[in-house]
Design a protein around this nucleic acid. Structure first.
Lengths: 190, 190
DNA sequence: TGTACATCAGTGAACGCGCGTTCACTGATGTAC
DNA sequence: TGTACATCAGTGAACGCGCGTTCACTGATGTAC
């Protein structure tokens, strides 16, 4: 049942994308290889024709998610400051289904315990997001703009994570609202 | 081998405390019942004399961690604004071994997927922390002070989580430094 | 206060289960002639 | 272009392993008389 090169590449990509969704929904540990393969319409045995290990898939799925996030942020920023802010506000939605979600938010504490490669692709994605936002910083000093961008991003990460933990929807909404309000003020400061 | 009531209560407490440490170090899924019992000097079979399930232990360990955190924050706040800020700055250390760490930071994305009870104790702890910080808000409007406290806490959560993901120690330090700088300014705003 | 008995914390073997991974096999694809 | 053969994506059974949980048992503790 050998498949053509294009088919193989497409299957590999499909596994990564399905996996990226599942990881963000249920976490890394809770997502099994067999489950992902079944969702891709395959049996689990074929997994190792595409990846060396589950860990490699984790890394690639994380990279794909970050790339998608960076790509859409770049597109929004290219259209102006207001679209960029709108883009960031979307990330701050309670459900956060936007673009399938940000891996930093959905699996933050799990990523912190992940291996070198996974943390590296996550870090690289973060750096790119900082750069995109910093380019719109209102300060004349680039370093200050970058600081503002870093604070904006990490504050958003914390707000959405906390909003998801909180068991009271009203408080969750309030947390996100406060983060949104600070979105414009903070990176523009100083 | 029945033990006295005090001994039993002490053992139960010991399991919770050891478990709280392990969860914060390695995450919920990665921490096994047998591992915890061994660390407490017991065999895994006895676990179910103290807890109905692993899930119950997760909830109790989370509650104990939050209580400890709230208790120390209260003590610091009682000593004045400067001790409280110093307390918050300690939480923002890269290693964050302070008080054994905050469960919201160490297991944020895992807590977001936890059951109702666990999310409830985490939420309750968060509300108490907000109250403690809001009491020191420099605004005359209590609601604004609470908003500042919420933003401070969630921003800290995001900063430490991101600092732990980042693979470059220099950038991690920078993230924490920026969060520390904003610590004083933000809750005092407006 | 002393004795007989019920309680129950802790032991260690065993349970079913799902995990990541391996492997012999299949058969369509790509390649060499 | 046609034929023969090597490749390899995908299958499905099987692997060892560690997990949460159960259970028969032990023996010190608490209780009833």
């Amino acid at each position: 049942m050998k498949k053509s090169k294009t088919e193989t590449a497409e299957t590999r990509q499909r596994i990564i994308e399905i996996d990226a969704q599942a990881f963000k929904r249920n976490g890394i540990d809770a997502t099994g290889v067999a489950e992902i393969m079944a969702a891709a319409g395959l049996t689990h045995g074929g997994f190792y024709r595409h990846f060396e290990s589950k860990q490699q898939l984790v890394t690639e799925a994380c990279a794909a998610s970050m790339d998608q996030l960076v790509h859409s942020a770049k597109a929004a920023a290219g259209a102006g400051l207001e679209p960029l802010l709108e883009h960031l506000r979307n990330v701050l939605h309670a459900e956060n289904t936007y673009l399938g979600g940000c891996p930093l938010i959905a699996m933050g504490s799990e990523l912190a315990r992940s291996d070198k490669n996974t943390r590296h692709v996550a870090s690289q994605g973060f750096r790119e997001l900082v750069e995109i936002i910093a380019d719109w910083g209102l300060s004349n000093d680039p370093a200050t703009s970058a600081d503002g961008a870093i604070f904006t991003l990490t504050s958003m990460l914390g707000a959405v994570t906390m909003a998801r933990i909180i068991d009271d929807p009203e408080l969750s909404e309030r947390i996100l609202r406060i983060a949104k309000t600070s979105l414009v003020k903070v990176p523009a400061r100083s």
